[in-house]
Design a protein around this nucleic acid. Structure first.
Lengths: 337, 337
DNA sequence: CTGTTAGCGCCTTCAT
DNA sequence: ATGAAGGCGCTAACAG
């Protein structure tokens, strides 16, 4: 049907192997024949059949990405980093979107198989304990991005230290002079076992403790990850008899909800209320939101780099790389009134 | 290295072909042998090598998706629909993210090739005229989703009638009694040649005309697609000597910017200003934004369905399916004061 | 340096 | 209903 290596060989008057060598930049070809073969390849618009290459090489030339990437901007950013790293590569990026735990568990078992892929990136999805051992023993390299679960030490990982991040955010508010600092986040228990909200909460508590501020349970609220719910929760906080003067929201999306709540109540930000978010997604800059920057895009790149190394056979033992988290000060935090 | 069809055959005491038949649910196998072979398959945890299957079948079992999916929520929704449709399928979804025109053009040429994929979905990306002919003559089926360019009639398409949508949105405002209706959108000329903004603008003009309202150039503003820019533009509109009483924003994202501008100026929505958006992305519901609903997710599903039909060889001629656009009335539109 | 040949793992006639 | 054999397009020894 389409033009094959054989056609090229015939046309160029050489053997199959020679064409193959030209394709693969083998040095074992004379300049003259290389030149000739290249010309024929161009003339015939020949493109090696990737499927045949894969079969012959015993590689799939495919990277799988398993991620709940649609629900939040942060996942999309990571995915962008991954995709970008794969552009100038022989590798295809095959996508597995996870929207339910059933799909997650199905993918955890069925995706990481030799016949299917050369490597797997799992983004923001801690596996169940039941799946951990099989993942750790899996013959195909796996890299977890943004999965801090303590039991994951047997896997390659790109981690973000959310405890530290939560602590920094809180310390920033405290350093500004705030004594009444609230924490607003997702529910700690989610179907996917995300740990970020809880880790940032732990950082929050540590910061309070170090500053000698006492912990007030009524200043900690958690609910579904959305604009609207965050707004409601923030309204609750701000209507307390003794409301907080600063709110640390565990994501920028939720911080937006907090800002809305402030507007509803006619509170000026940052004069009457300081707000800090987390992630530094695109919209944060537009809104002037002070936030903790995670290098989302870069975490995707690092994940690919690590995965490629693992595929190449370096790293006998699991590698764990930590991404930095940095404070980005903008216009929603200031000393209390 | 891993277990092959040969191992299964040997173990089960049958020929290769029989195992193959069992795998592919051929009726030409006795119940007894099928049973036996199935048992061995399970015991050995055998999984057919997809690469070998592809080579043998002469199919890639792969669908490519080319899309600028990261820049806006609407693209991500379409992508979700696509992914979901592919789940219970033999097909892999290989992703090509476009962030520059160079990448778009490179993908337009290199992705739709027999050896690479069985079909291509191009989302929201009108190709250059130079590429049109080769795409139309391409031996691998292509479906364009959300590409209204008039020169695309030679390709399968899932289209959204943005002219009609723009008209409906505007008519809704006019029906409420608004006489001073503004239109706020992306720049009409973009590197990717998106046509949506201009088409909706045409719909806007048509609606004005039909209602006998005269067109005011100062009521039409366009700028970069973002929250912040939209807000600035909206401020400009609202500070006109004779400001509009209603604003039609060409996307929900931009509508959010308009809402912010209203807040900045202390204008109550919808009492003092009506706002309608476009897309009906998730956040629209939370904010109570009146908007034009596109069935984004569903457009992805329809695209896959059409592509699969094309791959199956139905459709000698290009098929064009139109997705409906409907008004979703919420809390940001009302009669003028 | 170059050509010949034997697989890679599976599907599919073609006999039986 | 089943097995044997050829072929999908390419790569990688192995000879020369």
């Amino acid at each position: 049907m389409s033009v094959t290596i054989r056609d090229v060989a015939k046309q160029a008057g050489v053997g199959l192997a020679t064409v193959s060598r030209v394709i693969n930049n083998s040095p074992l070809v004379s300049a003259a024949t290389r030149e000739k073969v290249s010309r024929i390849i161009a003339e015939l618009d020949y493109h090696p059949n990737p499927t045949a290459r894969r079969l012959s090489l015993g590689k799939t030339l495919t990277i799988a990405v398993v991620t709940p990437f649609f629900t939040r901007p942060a996942f999309v950013e990571r995915l962008r980093g991954i995709h970008t790293s794969l552009i100038d590569t022989d590798y295809d990026l095959v996508l597995y979107n996870v929207e339910t735990t059933e799909r997650r568990d199905a993918y955890m078992r069925s995706v990481p198989r030799r016949e299917r892929v050369d490597g797997v990136l799992i983004v923001s999805l801690p596996p169940r304990n039941e799946d951990l051992i099989s993942l750790a023993n899996c013959p195909v390299p796996i890299v977890m991005i943004d999965a801090n679960h303590p039991s994951l030490t047997m896997l390659h990982r790109i981690v973000i230290n959310d405890v530290t991040g939560g602590q920094c955010a809180t310390e920033h508010l405290i350093a500004l002079g705030h004594q009444r600092v609230a924490y607003l986040s997702d529910t700690f228990e989610t179907p996917f076992n995300f740990t970020a909200s809880y880790d940032r909460y732990r950082g929050y508590r540590q910061a309070l403790e170090r500053a000698g501020l006492h912990y007030r349970p009524e200043y900690v609220v958690a609910g579904e990850h959305s604009h609207a719910v965050a707004r409601q929760m923030a309204l609750g906080l701000l209507r307390l008899p003794e409301p907080p003067t600063a709110i640390f929201a565990a994501s920028d999306t939720q911080a937006l909800g907090v800002l809305e709540a402030a507007q509803v109540l006619g509170l000026r930000v940052p004069e009457q209320l300081s707000v800090i978010g987390y992630d530094d997604i695109e919209v944060a800059e537009y809104l002037g939101l002070t936030t903790m920057r995670q290098q989302l895009f870069e975490s995707g790149r690092r994940g690919v780099a690590l995965l490629m190394e693992a595929i190449a056979g370096r790293h006998a033992d699991p590698v764990c790389e930590e991404m930095p988290v940095t404070l980005v000060e903008r216009r929603t935090t200031a000393p209390p009134a």
